[in-house]
Write a protein that binds this DNA or RNA. Structure first.
Lengths: 290, 290
DNA sequence: CACGCACTGAAAAAATCTTTTCATGACAAC
DNA sequence: GTTGTCATGAAAAGATTTTTTCAGTGCGTG
């Protein structure tokens, strides 16, 4: 069967981009407090998610299950696997007493985001993306929104050292068409788009896809509309006790990807870094003399 | 109710003596691999135990439950309680990203960094910095190195929305003197400098200090030489299982500061954000028409 | 051996859950 | 505008589950 070894959570995540509004709402409800929230009857979970029972049926079938009972059977298996594996590992963060200081509240929120994100990220997806980014034959294009532009830049700066053929699209969309013009099939467009999704990014994604480029998307749990166009999507938790969303976990994923790519092509990268060091040295020397 | 705080398992045990043969058989079946064995339908568990469904109904009623659904609801609650405790949660995350996977190693490292950084950061320092950043009379200047430039930009982008008089110094040091020229006493220079400390940033810090500006420094545990010049220094742990350093915790501090500043001047900020929304809207409209 | 009593499960009845159908509304393309 | 497509939930239909009824069985007792 298609849903053999993957967890229900994985399946939901991998289909998340293709889900409709009500279905996303349902998926969120299921993933929140997963997998216990899926234990009840179809009526119960529909009510909890605020959707109708037909929506539940349609979604689980879309996910590849035969019907709700089939879906629930898988969930039961997972619960069983989780529970009957009582490995008592040391509790890493419980000592982090929920203080009242903003730093502590932030820390709690970030760790929660990290945990939930990691539960949701399919390692297979992660590895696929790392492999794509490692492929020197593909040109890489990075782009972000108003806030996330800095993340795109951070990612770009590292990848530029690790491998050739990387480009950072400026925040100004007027220059984008030129980049799209140069995209060939197999090229990668790495997009950062979190809520207050920017329509222009979706247009860019669409145009890039038409040029044959493949899209890797970093978005939030509610998923940018660009998810429908993306080959791989990272849905990252961004909630913080703040008027602003948190990019910490997104940066975490980015750094992990950087390491994964670097690691897979270490020999070449080492050479590049040496050369780069030399270049920096020369520049410094040049300035001193000048 | 009798079954208020006791677990279903307790209830079964306490009633075990009064159970009949078929019921004992059923009870054994339920306790074996408890509580997962009770997850299915009454038919399923009856079959598993080798008894009839009426036996199940009779037993659960004898145990004090209203009926099978009531019995199962209690079981679900217990499953939830078991799964939702932090230790079990960590197990789930770990199982999703097996121990050796880069994501998992990174997560461990980052949480460690976060804890160590929080232990080292004085909340008084944090609050002082937040207060300085909130002071509208001071001009803010942000600057970062090659890698940390993105962090400076991220910080700047947010602060620019929250308050006036903010500037981002470009990565190119040739434009810096002009900024220094304009600095007045009380102005703040926020510097990001982590290892492979950049000599130019130290020079900038020195020049700025001579102009009366106060310096806030984000650096790593080994501390940039600029620390000697800084009024406040955040020493952040940056170690990661990678050839690169991690900026995740630095970003964490930045976000916490953003929230602290925003929070202390919420009324004014709200107005600014509203206006900004309006401006974005206009821009969008303008583009559509154009 | 007959009787009473409690236990048990088959089968019917009742309740509930799951799936399908279909009307409506939103929205994009023309 | 008009048209077609898609998403959605109300409601009906269908399937399953849960409960009740009831007849059969085993067993101890007079």
């Amino acid at each position: 069967m298609t849903v053999a070894s993957k967890t229900v959570s994985d399946v939901i995540h991998s289909h998340f981009g293709t889900l409709t509004r009500a279905e996303k709402q349902l998926a969120e409800s299921l993933l929140d407090n997963y997998p216990v929230s899926g234990l009840g009857s179809i009526t119960t979970i529909a009510e909890n998610a605020g959707v109708s029972t037909p929506t539940v049926v349609r979604m689980v079938q879309k996910l590849g299950f035969k019907g709700y009972p089939d879906f629930q059977a898988h969930l039961h298996q997972e619960v069983e696997a989780t529970i009957s594996n009582p490995i008592a590992k040391h509790d890493r963060w419980a000592s982090n007493a929920p203080g009242t200081h903003i730093l502590n509240r932030f820390a709690d929120a970030i760790i929660d985001n990290l945990r939930q994100t990691l539960t949701g990220v399919d390692t297979a997806t992660f590895d696929s993306v790392a492999a794509l980014l490692s492929d020197r034959k593909r040109n890489l294009y990075f782009v972000g929104g108003r806030i996330t532009g800095a993340l795109a830049e951070y990612f770009f700066t590292h990848m530029q050292v690790i491998r050739p053929s990387t480009a950072l699209l400026s925040a100004n969309s007027s220059s984008w068409p030129q980049y799209v013009l140069n995209m060939s099939p197999g090229d990668l467009l790495i997009i950062f788009d979190i809520r207050r999704y920017e329509q222009e990014l979706v247009s860019l994604a669409s145009a890039a896809k038409n040029s044959g480029a493949e899209i890797i998307l970093f978005t939030d749990q509610w998923a940018s509309p660009a998810a429908k166009l993306a080959k791989h999507t990272f849905r990252v938790r961004i909630e913080a006790p703040s008027a602003w969303d948190s990019s910490v976990v997104t940066l975490f994923i980015v750094e992990a990807l950087i390491e994964a790519v670097q690691n897979s092509t270490w020999d070449e990268t080492k050479e590049r870094m040496k050369t780069l060091e030399g270049l920096f040295e020369q520049t410094r020397l040049f300035r001193k003399l000048g």
